[in-house]
Design a protein around this nucleic acid. Structure first.
Lengths: 250, 250
DNA sequence: TTCCATTTGTTCGTATGTATA
DNA sequence: TTATACATACGAACAAATGGA
């Protein structure tokens, strides 16, 4: 139930707007948590000391803003927070996370050297014509988190003989960026990303902590160094319930 | 069944690659159509005059490229064609379609003048702070098709008093671009796109001709003119089974 | 399956303050 | 000043969806 301390309405601003601000502040502050059920419209109206219509107007607004989710016959619920992932030329996980003022992690799930010929996505990789054809690649699987929420599963393939050392470096506790730098890769940019959607599989559900039937984005990214040589091909899976992809030119 | 004319293999290139090229060309040319069942591996091998293993290698490759779909115990099928939709700063439907050498259409499903206050997405629209606050907007709903395939449902909202005339112009048979130009909008660019995913609803299934349970992309786009004034807010729905979104900087 | 309580959605009506002509 | 229109706010009743008994 919502705190009993009533809001003092100031004249000059519509009451429903003041209620919107109040509820929004409570959601952003963490007083109301994700998926928490709000009291019914009638109860909320009584708590705020307004008519049910006024309360509804405020709830409609919050729903349009994506802060609450209203379900006919069930009630209103605090909506899940959605992270905006921007498609940019220089994608860096750590930069992304900073925006949300939460500690970000990128756990290494797996790191191994694979034979190029065994990769199921080999044909798609080769069609870009930018990756060196060394017969082995470094494969690194990571789980990205923002705060406690799993937000991405990534399977990175690093190309070129020198980068095979990444696997050992990671086992030795070094970070990916650090290790890349040590092997001569100081900067890389995105050449292309393709975005598809799929139903979550058992492995994704387990790692991303999503329900059966939830949709995931599947992004395949081609990253190249400053001379245009392919450095990394990554397949990243995002839960669509928690991540929205954003394209913002300029 | 596949044409009987055998392929003459040239030395120096592996045979399976030559078979891949041959089949790929037949698919791209339209000789083999979507969802068509290919002959069994044994028959294909005999037709090409190669061992079944060689044939399998070629089919595996085509499957990895997304050109065919192999189903254990059923056979191989020509995969559905997927249209790549590029996220660009100056999006034009007609430009997109050109790439695929098929006639593109954008049918007008609906055109009406709506009250700003009645829009469910009003809050999201206003938060960008670029759209003029004239109390009415022109709403145009279109169905995009490439060849005979429905590829998008778009709900365009055009802002500014002058653009209300779009509705009448469209009823009079004029095109959107043409009408925009007549009312002073000669160019516009994308300020922002957000990409979400959802299950297809009944309306989408009907218009896009997709099955129940198929996933759709939901893109919200903000388009502005050269001075940064908001011109159009559009919500576009793409069937993920037929459209892949592509981000390619530079 | 039916029935029922709960909750949101919709539509009446009424009253009041504010902006505009 | 008057008349009109519009947004805001309150009151009551019923419809429709949901979930549990």
């Amino acid at each position: 139930m919502i705190s009993t301390s009533k809001v003092q309405f100031v004249p000059g601003i519509t009451i429903w707007k003041q209620i919107v601000d109040d509820l929004q502040a409570r959601i952003d502050s963490g007083e109301l948590v994700e998926n928490q059920k709000l009291p019914g419209e009638a109860d909320l109206a009584k708590a705020y000391g307004v008519n049910r219509h006024t309360m509804r107007r405020a709830l409609q607004e919050l729903a349009a803003m994506g802060k609450v989710r209203i379900q006919h016959g069930r009630g209103s619920f605090v909506a899940k927070h959605v992270f905006d992932y921007e498609l940019v030329e220089r994608p860096r996980f750590s930069e992304w996370v900073k925006k949300y003022n939460k500690p970000g992690n990128n756990d290494i799930l797996e790191a191994a050297i694979l034979n190029l010929a065994e990769l199921p996505e080999l044909a798609r990789i080769q069609q870009y014509g930018v990756f060196p054809e060394y017969p082995q690649v470094a494969m690194i699987k990571t789980l990205g988190r923002v705060g406690e929420e799993p937000i991405s599963i990534a399977r990175h393939l690093f190309f070129g003989e020198a980068l095979l050392a990444l696997v050992e470096d990671l086992h030795a506790g070094r970070g990916i960026t650090e290790s890349l730098r040590q092997h001569g890769v100081h900067d890389y940019t995105r050449m292309r990303s393709t975005i598809s959607a799929a139903m979550s599989g058992p492995q994704e559900r387990d790692l991303l902590k999503v329900e059966k039937g939830e949709i995931v984005f599947v992004c395949e990214n081609v990253n190249v160094d400053m001379t245009g040589v392919g450095i990394e091909f990554s397949t990243v899976i995002y839960p669509s319930s928690r991540v929205r992809l954003v394209y913002e030119p300029g």
